[in-house]
Design a binder for these strands. Structure first.
Length: 423
RNA sequence: GGCGGGUUACCCGAGUGGCCAAAGGGGGCUGACUGUAAAUCAGCUGGCAACGCCUACGGGGGUUCGAAUCCCUCACCCGCCA
């Protein structure tokens, strides 16, 4: 059987580790308790966080015991990032995000069985600590030189933005988390993104100083795109796991549109497909790129994982219907209804100005933008180009007497719902 | 606590009294070409009841026929010194 580290290596999931030989031995010999933290800096996790969750899941499948930490405390502080000082979020807001994020992580790990996962929140041990205890018991173990040398801290210090003491202290809080979880649960491995390396080491060093124990850290590389743009973003922003922030349809489309040069790497990182299956898909990309078999598998797998198989099947059907070459009028009412359900909708009736409907449906941002799109020849109703900005919705446009499909460009879609009661 | 610098549109960044809805770049959108791709080329990129009006150069106030530009004030950010 393949060693889990070799498996992770093959999937391109290892950027850095502390003493790799020791980690390999530990993971090979028995059950290792490990943790990975997620800070509530938004109402939802995004697909970048998914890399971490799935890596943890892979370790769990290999028999190890995962703890998912939601940063109720660290989320109140914010780790330093190059973009500049963070705006502090209100405690009740962060508490709400903690709950949402907890619910997003839970379905992705197994909370039963011998390697049952467990959720934790660092607010539990951080909030009760006094400033005196923090400075005496923890702060004394931290050398300023080491803290200042941390990459993000050093770069922020020399930037125009500088860095606040609050964010500077973040690394100590994360170090405390590792120490606390090590004491409570015998955790000896922390995983995270490569940008977290310094914060992971903070805990490793603290445990060595306080407990005299050598524990491990493992980071995953930043997921990149072949064209150099940032992974996980679309024109409408971050790809979130929350279906209200990124619809399952948009989520599926994101993965379906993966570049040929990226799709195999994504399959390794984001799916549980075997080596053989992925090799087969890689060959398919090389031989028949236009068929996009690998993209279809990737999109369906990841959407199933995050939103469930039923939702994934639904968006696949919708995608096929909406991007199919066939006449929309030829679709049966059931398929049409299913496809339409995946799209943003607005109510309307025959006689309404298309400019108004385009804006109301969110296909364009404003009426001016709607006129622009029409002038550019980029707006259509039921795949028929809108001729000019005086055009109105006609009764004849309603599919099955009820729906009309609005489109801007190739991919931005919405539906006008006349409620089946067109006058 | 003192002194200095800064805050312009989605981002960066020009602009020091009218020709400014505001250069340039990036990003984004649309079209052609395609595979719902990449690359490339072209056009567009504040809003609206639209030959006009409204909103917008950190907030507020003032000078002026006229302010992103000048003055006052407040807020916030950064740096240096203590």
């Amino acid at each position: 059987m393949t060693h889990i580290l070799d498996e992770l290596q093959w999937r391109g999931l290892i950027a850095q580790t502390t003493d790799e030989a020791a980690l390999r031995t530990a993971l090979g010999e028995g059950t290792v308790a490990l943790y990975c933290g997620f800070d509530p800096t938004a109402p939802s996790l995004h697909i970048g966080n998914l890399v971490q969750i799935l890596t943890v899941r892979r370790l769990q499948l290999a028999g190890h015991r995962p703890f998912a930490l939601v940063g109720g405390a660290t989320g109140l502080i914010g780790d330093p990032k190059m973009a500049g000082e963070r705006t502090l979020n209100a405690p009740d807001v962060v508490a709400g995000w903690v709950e949402r994020i907890r619910r997003q992580i839970e379905p992705l790990l197994d909370f039963d069985g011998p390697a049952a996962a467990q959720m934790t929140n660092n607010l539990d041990w951080t909030a009760p600590m006094s400033a005196i205890d923090f400075l005496r018991d923890v702060g004394k173990h931290y050398r300023l030189g080491t803290m200042l040398a941390k990459d993000t801290v050093a770069r922020r210090l020399s930037s125009d933005q500088g860095i606040s003491f609050t964010e500077f202290s973040y690394q100590i809080l994360q170090g405390m988390d590792y120490l606390e979880l090590h004491r409570r649960h015998g955790i000896t491995l922390q995983t995270g993104g490569s940008d977290q390396w310094g914060n992971l080491l903070s805990g490793v060093e603290l445990i060595r100083k306080v407990e005299g124990r050598a524990v491990h850290a493992l980071t995953t590389p930043l997921i990149t795109k072949a064209d150099g743009t940032k992974f996980g973003k679309t024109e409408s922003g971050t790809v979130w796991l929350d279906p209200d922030m990124t619809s399952p349809y948009a989520f599926y489309q994101f993965w379906l549109n993966a570049d040929d040069a990226d799709v195999v790497r994504y399959l390794k990182v984001f799916t549980f497909r075997s080596r053989e299956e992925i090799d087969g898909l890689e060959a398919a990309v090389a031989e028949r790129p236009a068929a996009r078999e690998a993209q279809r598998v990737l999109a369906h797998d990841v959407t199933s994982l995050v939103h469930g198989v039923a939702a994934a099947d639904g968006v696949v059907a919708a995608s096929q219907a909406l991007f199919g070459r066939g006449d929309l009028r030829a679709l049966d009412p059931v398929t049409t209804a299913a496809a339409v359900a995946e799209l943003p909708s607005t109510s309307g009736r025959p006689g309404d100005l298309l400019v108004d409907l385009l804006a109301a449906s969110g296909v364009v941002a404003s009426k001016a933008a709607a006129r622009r799109a029409i002038a550019e020849g980029g707006a259509s109703v039921n795949n028929v180009k809108v001729p000019d900005d005086a055009a109105v919705l006609s009764a004849d446009d309603l599919l099955h007497g009820r729906w009309a499909l609005l489109r801007r460009g190739k991919r931005t879609l919405a539906v006008v719902d006349a409620g089946g009661a067109a006058p």
